[in-house]
Amino acid sequence: MKKLNRRNFIKGSLAGGLAAAATCNAKDAKAAGGDFGGYPDSMGVLVDLTKCVGCRTCEAACNKEQGLPEPDKPFDDFSVFDERREGGLPRRTTEKAYTVVNRYEVEGRAHPLFRKVQCNHCNEPACLTSCFVNAYTKTPEGAVIYNPKVCVGCRTCMIACPFYVPAYSYSSAINPVVKKCIMCYDTRLKFGRPPACVEACPQGVMTFGKRKDMIALAHEKINAKPGKYVGHVYGETEVGGTSWMYLSDVPFAEIGFDTHLGKEPIISHVKDFLAIVPMVLCIWPALFTGFHLLATRKQTNKENSTKA
């Protein structure tokens, strides 16, 4: 009789302890999630969309640097700008192309506007938040890289990414994984060199440097030529800030940018839920085991006493 009570007591205190630990963790998560703001000395790229002429050299450079498979069309074939996928949308990044250039005909603009798409390398990446095997890393240099060896191909990051960047190797039957731009981390960024596309661009569309310097430069450019650019640097604050930022002379909404993402990192929207997950996993089994034992205690006692 006494023995059983003690066991119950230990179980109860264990469950309580776990609950306390889980609550503590949740508080920590609340303090960390969404307040990171990026590494102070991380690198960034400022893309001046007004300068791009749509030559696709960046696509070719990316293909060679990353050792990607042969493209479907040559890189000097400009018919790709007319391609449309489901929903009439222009091209997106794929397992074979980590960056693509799209053309936008803008009313009232003398020339079409070209926009390069690649991973924006968020300060607080949603892909990283969503990945349950921790395949993603945000490096101090600013790149969001991933480890394909641990990727299980669940594609949660593809849904989590607000920019629809990660692509998937659908063509691989045996080991399909997520594929995306890594800002040339392995071959260049790590050694202090700019990504291949930045270096290859003939027009100097992209400027590479410390992210904070790029923000300053962007505002200098906006102020230096009043009326030339729209007064916003896309990526400075979007979803907590991104390493790649954009200047444009037409409203961003007109050239396919999502302007309703808000300033909060994606993790801020999900951290409350994510904090509950470990709590549920830790407390519920202990709690309901306790309930079960309590509920069946009388019967167990009876059985024990009859045995005795």
Binding site: N63, K64, P69, F75, D76, D77
Partner: peptide, 19 residues
């Protein structure tokens, strides 16, 4: 070779992409 064009152009009909 760099631009996958001319003599290095991809063979037509060999598209393997899946979107």
């Amino acid at each position: 070779k760099y631009y996958n064009t001319g003599q290095f152009a991809p063979k037509p009909g060999k598209s393997s992409s899946h979107h």
